[in-house]
Amino acid sequence: MITSLPLALALSVVFAATGAYALVRWSAAMTGPLPPSRRMAELAHLLMSVAMVVMTWSWAGTTGVTVQIVAFSVFTGYFVLDAVRRYRTGSHGCAGGSAHALMAAAMVWMLAAMPLIMPTPVVAGAGGHGGHSGHGGGDGAAMDMGAHAGPAAWAVVVTIGACAALLATSVFWTVRGLRGRTVVAGAPLPEVTTTEAAAEPVPTGGGTAVATAAPAATATVAALATHRLLGPRSDAGCHALMGLGMIAMLLAMVAGW
């Protein structure tokens, strides 16, 4: 889907990195270091990263794109509801939830608007076989996704708006990452509820859902490394990187790079 090889490689590296990071965090949410409630967000990050890598190189076909649109719409709906719930209850995480919702919505838009914003038509392989008797006669014919009259102006405008919103979320995550805590050996971990950045639960390695102010002096080097890897700063950095990657992808689609 991305014509420029250097750009495609760069985007692949970025999303492979964010996908690997999301996989690590999702595994942590499945096994204890992160709370189970993080599974949804980490699963969204993982799937989004994988979908972006695939999208960089190929067109998933009508069915594949439809499935992805449905999946990311579910994520969008979930994050919107979650953000609203947090806003109403005054709990932390509303901003983060909103940013998640925006990114998932941008993903839905990217998938849905691809035929509208790309200068060249997208093409899908029909694939599949004719059945028992017809094996070996599978039609690999290419399928043009309808007549293509170039990018639609309104869709390009919406895409640019989505890029601006994504840029705002990337800035939000960057600031959050820069202001976030670092673990310093010998120093106690700060309270988790003092800042927006502290909304991220601190991994304790013992399956505890909410961070406790355990003295870091007792933390092993491995625990420290795990904390750094799973902590709020690296998480915010990953979000920022994903946002920037999505902006690059959207712009590349519009420009036909």
Partner: peptide, 26 residues
């Protein structure tokens, strides 16, 4: 892959609903 995603989505939603963790959405 798609069926696995559906299963993991259901699992994640169930876990999220079960959890009273106020800091779930980072």
């Amino acid at each position: 892959g798609a069926s696995l995603i559906v299963f993991l989505l259901v699992d994640a939603v169930v876990q999220s609903l079960r959890s009273e963790d106020p800091v779930a959405a980072g």
